[in-house]
Design a protein around this nucleic acid. Structure first.
Lengths: 242, 242
DNA sequence: CTGCATCCTCTTCGATACTG
DNA sequence: CAGTATCGAAGAGGATGCAG
């Protein structure tokens, strides 16, 4: 029987698409490119993939020479690292994201909201430069959400940032309260901290210096700078700033 | 029930992958980027896709704003054209091909050979500049293949080139005889006309001026110039040039 | 907890035939 | 020419289990 996953074409686009353009693979590559190397970290950035399929895709990527599987001596941990071939896929993944940011309308981009994904992404890109040189705790609250997804803590310490979903017990330096839609819009660059503070959909209380530099330390999506080329109709339930 | 084709992620990479990275879609885009606009031409470049699926993908691409469907007034013909958003996908598709050319080993690239695909691609990229300014007929023969796939004619007239699989009845100006593997390797840039003439796997007889410029008018794959970064083991059954 | 393997269901894809 | 219709095969998702 003919393998159904091959295109049977010698064209390099077809050969590459067989490796890169299968379900979940571009997103797995995005996670790897963003620096995740552990199975569980990858899965955290891709909550809806089944572990079975993630495992299978990682094997296929290894087989294709895109990643290397590195087990620690005693087999305690496994890391997946991009090979040189994998490194060169960064361009493709990034260009794909740029295209998406430019041409996919805001309305549909802002349909698939997930606080744990958003917080996980924020943790990854947070820029601690404006923070004081000590442990700094930011609490983010989405009052609209169910209790289990309502409260989040970002614990900045040196260059590392930790993310918690349960109260870590530290004193909070900065409180942020908003709704998931607004926070996602800011993260994606279709709105700004300033505009949402004015609109009243975002409230920030605490340390004044950190408060005023939020747009900086928030470290937006890598694609946030790219402007939409499609009309962004006013999103339902989200009236414009007065 | 949750739609299974969405990733449920707001990340632009995910949104773009939902549109671009479904089965066959990168290849359909390659055909569109290469200039095909008609359903039957697209299908000719993608012989193994079912018309059902091609039709479905074209609808999805139209829905996504990547192409426009244009029916002639009397509905006799239909054309699919890239929108501005679709034009910007050229980069992504091209980069994907570049990556494939660099990182996928020759052995696997040269597994999926198909004379009609190869000839269709050659027709598309042929450069008629070195030909005399009249109808010029090139016959290509693959003696190894079954009769129905053995003989091909390229009919160059002005800037247009026609491809025939049955004898068009014209006098032939140039005869080319080779095997499919060799011709594909030349087309993909992993071998050259000169090397294969020397190896004896390629024979060309007829018009001397056109014969000597074959490497030029053949108009290789758009990716042929990109050098492989992976070792190219000597391909089985294809010994190196002495 | 990490990193999978199994089992089962549901969706998608491919092959072929057929239509206006 | 430009697609639909049909149906069996393959692939993806979900739940669960389990070893280190």
């Amino acid at each position: 029987m003919v393998s159904t996953q091959s295109y049977w074409q010698f064209c390099p686009v077809a050969m590459a698409a067989e490796i890169v353009c299968t379900r979940w693979t571009p997103l797995i590559l995005r996670e790897l490119v963003s620096g995740s190397t552990r199975f569980s970290d990858l899965h955290r950035g891709l909550p809806r993939i089944s572990p079975t399929l993630l495992s299978k895709r990682l094997k296929q990527l290894e087989e294709a020479g895109v990643i290397r599987r590195l087990a620690s001596p005693n087999n305690e941990t496994v890391e997946y690292q991009l090979t040189p071939a994998g490194e060169e896929l960064k361009t493709v993944v990034f260009d794909l994201g740029i295209w998406g940011q430019r041409w996919i309308e805001t309305r549909s981009s802002l349909k698939n909201l997930d606080p744990s994904l958003l917080m996980w992404d924020m943790r990854r890109n947070l820029d601690p430069t404006p923070m004081p040189p000590r442990r700094y705790v930011i609490q983010i609250v989405y009052p609209e959400l169910t209790p289990g997804r309502r409260h989040w803590w970002l614990i900045v310490e040196g260059k590392a940032t930790d993310l918690c979903n349960v109260d870590p017990g530290f004193d909070v330096d900065l409180y942020v309260s908003t709704d998931l839609h607004t926070m996602t819009a800011i993260w994606m660059g279709v709105s700004t901290v300033e505009a949402e503070l004015r609109s009243g959909r975002l409230q920030v209380t605490g340390d004044d210096r950190v408060r005023s530099t939020m747009q900086q330390w928030l470290g937006l999506s890598p694609f946030a700078a790219e402007k939409k080329r499609v009309p962004s109709p006013a999103v339902a339930g989200q009236p414009d700033t007065r």
